[in-house]
Amino acid sequence: MAVCIAVIAKENYPLYIRSVPTQNELKFHYTVHTSLDVVEEKISAVGKAMADQRELYLGLLYPTEDYKVYGYVTNSKVKFVIVVDSSNASLRDNEIRSMFRKLHNSFTDVMCNPFYNPGDTIRSKAFDGMVSTMMVQTS
């Protein structure tokens, strides 16, 4: 389960960011921000060398001491970043993939909502609820 989920716009500003309530929420913002460079690198690499391997899922971006950061980029160049706890060893690649797919489905629904303005911060309750199901439950 994720500790932080972020949606980043084409122009690299946050559309949505949510993390588990801890003391240092800012640390997650920093982690996500740093990951954007890796995302950028991976996208430009896809254009050149790996012409046959054109997947939306970017895989593990980088591990830190406490967390693992995964990335995903849609065809419209919107980025999704999921941060998970490193201690959570049971989480497999497949599960991360399905989390991203769920996130993408919900994001599509938000985009197709006529009352949502593309580029605005996401305030949808349905999206919020879906993200909550993927976050670590803290009681």
Binding site: T74, S76, H104, N105, T108, M111, C112, P114
Partner: peptide
């Protein structure tokens, strides 16, 4: 909106 859905 449509292209977001079609290219999913």
């Amino acid at each position: 909106g449509l292209i977001e859905r079609f290219t999913k």
